[in-house]
Amino acid sequence: MLTRRILPKLNLVKSSIFKRSIMSIILNPTGQAMPQVGFGLWKVPQETCAETVYNAIKSGYRLFDGAQDYGNEKEAGDGIRKAIADGLVKREELFITSKLWNAFHSKEHVLEMTKKSLADWGLDYFDLWLIHFPIAQKYVDPATRYPPNLLYDVDAGTMEFEDVPISETWAEMEKAVELGYAKNIGISNFAGALIIDLLRYAKIKPSVLQIEHHPYLTQPQIVALAKQRGIAITAYSSFGPQSFLELNHPGAQKVGLLLSSDMITSIASAHGKTPAQVLLRWATQRGLAVIPKSNSQTRLAENLNHLDFDLTEEELAQISGLDCGMRFNDPADWPGQIYIFA
């Protein structure tokens, strides 16, 4: 007879290390507290990134979510070092997340690139180190192009892939923990079947799953799976199509903006909150972490301080009812028509 092992539910606690009252999620298996609200570094320009991070720390942010592919790790680290030097925060009060890019999945490159990212940030360790996508692309030497982005051959506009199983990459991620390069390791953009397979052989279980999650893409099955297995969930693109309009994503043109939705604005008005705060609270009230970004100091504070009200069960259901399966960050939409498996 098959049996299920139910792991402890994720705990939400107020973390005492923060000057402000910020809820935190306790991660398995380390017991480390991860702030439930962080600042996402995707699309933050290099020229303003250091100042943006510094200002976010001044506003009370303690979690910063980066990635090798964002191309701004060094600048983000500059902002952190300035904040520490100015006495705004201590390193142990910050929770820094970054992600291993697709071109560095093989066992020859995982630890090498982990150390590169740490050097770019100017850090001794990551609080959380994620596999960005469960897709192994052909290695690109950083001396040639960094970050390599999606294309292997830029002139030809093609992507090339390598035959590297997730098990090989994950074993090296576990070594990153053993060597002190990362306190927690996790996954991003993984489907349910891949998660179940990973859990079969992982010596260190993933602490966090990061997924695209907004009212147009609620992904209830994978959310339930992660919670049942004791894996915390971080939602990205919480505002749906907002971040993809400037990328001319076709899907963003097909659906209305959540921030101007009649339903969302009506619920926001009823609570005396902004539409952004409602969208974030819809996620955090259901136990997920969020990583919004903004270049506005006012919106920075609003996004961070959205935990002081609760949506009704009816409102939560209404917002979830907007689900139409609209995924904006889908590898099937990646550029290039020729796929070469090496």
Rank of each mutant, 00 (worst) to 15 (best):
P8D: 14
L12V: 15
F18L: 10
K19N: 15
K19E: 15
I22E: 09
M23F: 07
S24F: 03
I25K: 05
I26D: 06
N28G: 10
P29K: 13
Q32P: 02
V37T: 14
G40A: 07
K43L: 12
N55E: 14
K58S: 14
G60F: 00
Y61T: 02
G66E: 03
A67T: 10
Q68S: 13
D69I: 00
Y70A: 00
G71P: 01
D78Y: 04
A85M: 10
G87D: 11
G87E: 10
R91Q: 10
F95H: 02
T97A: 04
S98F: 01
K99H: 01
L100V: 09
H105D: 02
S106G: 12
E108G: 03
M113T: 00
K115L: 03
L130M: 10
H132E: 03
P134Y: 00
Y139L: 03
A143W: 00
P148E: 07
N149A: 13
L150S: 03
L150N: 05
V154E: 15
E160P: 03
E160I: 01
D163S: 10
D163Q: 11
T169W: 02
W170E: 08
E174P: 05
K175C: 01
A176Y: 04
N184K: 12
N189Q: 12
A191Q: 12
A191R: 09
I196S: 13
L199V: 08
R200W: 00
Y201S: 12
K203D: 13
I204Y: 06
Q210K: 04
I211E: 02
E212F: 07
L217C: 07
P220D: 11
P220R: 04
K227D: 14
G230T: 08
I231A: 08
I231M: 09
A232C: 11
A235Y: 05
S237T: 14
P241G: 06
P241S: 13
P241H: 06
L245H: 13
E246Y: 10
P250H: 09
P250E: 09
V255N: 01
V255P: 01
L257Y: 05
S266M: 07
I267L: 05
A268W: 04
A268F: 07
A270F: 00
T274L: 14
V278S: 04
L279F: 12
W282I: 09
A283S: 14
T284F: 07
G287W: 03
G287F: 06
V290G: 05
V290F: 02
S294R: 06
S294E: 08
A301R: 15
H306T: 14
D308R: 08
D308W: 06
L316D: 09
I319Q: 01
D323M: 08
G325S: 09
R327W: 09
R327F: 10
F328P: 05
N329T: 06
D330R: 03
P331F: 10
G336N: 07
A342R: 15
